[in-house]
């Protein structure tokens, strides 16, 4: 039954994959005029132009171009960088780990802060922490993350000197260094998510705590904490699971800004560089891999939701 459900969800992912790849591919159609000329610049030789056209498949009909791009992509061949000549797939995958570490930490921070704020504000309504949580919920969704990053760099790097302003250390290299280097970027990335989770969990917890089964739990003799822990939180977290999936995509996108601010060699920075260098295959590769990651995460959140809520039939 469960595998049937998995299979059906996977089946839904396939058309999504086709369309998203089509969108990624179509980016090249947006380039005004002759893409080869636009990519290489005005003083490119005719020789080089023909070579690039052949390399990008621009001399073929569009559907054929897409087909050959897609079949190559499926085999892991995303072309070569126009700038350095390295394989796009290698460049992207070498940066995947960095971005994943940053985003995963940001996710953890979002959840820790979100849970903390939401629960305390629900338990102590109209207390200072409730007001703080609500203030945070409003501010966190509006503050430009790169501005937040700059403020934190001024405080923690420039003035206090506690954390590095730029750079990244992988967790496999040096766990403490990783923690130090990831804290600021992950917090800036996660503050939006934390605010979203705070807002949503707070309102869904308030709603759940009004429900009849919470009254039943009290009537069994449970006190506030066990009631929240065993009967409130899991029910209130259900809608947050879906949000978490969306947040992941959001954070992945925001890495283009945050990784640039903190000079983190991840996918976001690669995306920005490839645009500035007009390295089109590289840009397509980054976008494609990010969307793939998002589709996978959406699939996982769907499955988690299905496992958490017994009312969802796997049939």
């Amino acid at each position: 039954m469960f595998f049937k459900f998995l299979f059906r969800r996977l089946f839904y992912v396939i058309p999504m994959l086709l369309i998203t790849t089509l969108v990624v591919f179509s980016l090249i159609l947006l380039i005004p005029g002759d893409p080869a000329l636009a990519l290489l610049g005005d003083n490119a030789t005719e020789e080089k132009l023909t070579l690039l056209r052949a390399q990008l498949g621009l001399d073929q009909p569009i559907m054929l171009q897409y087909w050959s791009w897609l079949t190559h992509a499926v085999q892991g061949d995303l072309g070569r960088s126009l700038f350095t000549g390295e394989f796009v797939s290698e460049a992207v995958f070498s940066r995947l780990g960095v971005t994943f570490q940053v985003v995963a930490t940001a996710m953890v921070i979002s959840f820790i802060l979100g849970l903390l704020f939401a629960i305390t504000s629900v338990i102590k309504p109209n207390s200072w922490i409730d007001y703080l949580a609500r203030f945070f919920g409003v501010l966190g969704t509006a503050i430009p993350n790169f501005w937040l990053a700059m403020i934190l760099v001024v405080i923690f790097s420039v003035n206090l000197g506690w954390l590095p302003a730029t750079g990244f250390t992988s967790i496999t290299e040096h766990p403490v260094g990783f923690f130090k280097s990831v804290l600021l970027p992950a917090f800036c990335l996660g503050s939006f998510g934390a605010a979203q989770i705070t807002r949503q969990l707070r309102s869904s917890l308030l709603e759940v705590l009004e429900s009849d089964y919470i009254r039943t739990a009290y009537s069994k003799g449970l006190l506030l904490w066990p009631v929240i822990w065993r009967h409130g939180l899991r029910n209130a977290l259900l809608p947050v699971v879906t949000t978490a999936g969306l947040l992941f995509g959001n954070m992945l996108g925001a890495t283009v800004v945050i990784e640039s601010v903190f000079a983190i060699p991840g996918m976001g920075q690669l995306a920005v560089h490839s645009i500035l260098q007009r390295d089109f295959p590289m840009l397509q590769g980054v976008v494609l891999i990010m969307v793939l990651m998002i589709l996978i995460i959406n699939f996982i959140t769907d499955v988690i939701y299905g496992m958490l809520d017994p009312r969802i039939e796997f049939e």
Binding site: M16, L252, N298
Partner: peptide
């Protein structure tokens, strides 16, 4: 919609 807004 599955593309991150900023990236797209």
């Amino acid at each position: 919609l599955s593309f991150p807004a900023i990236l797209l």
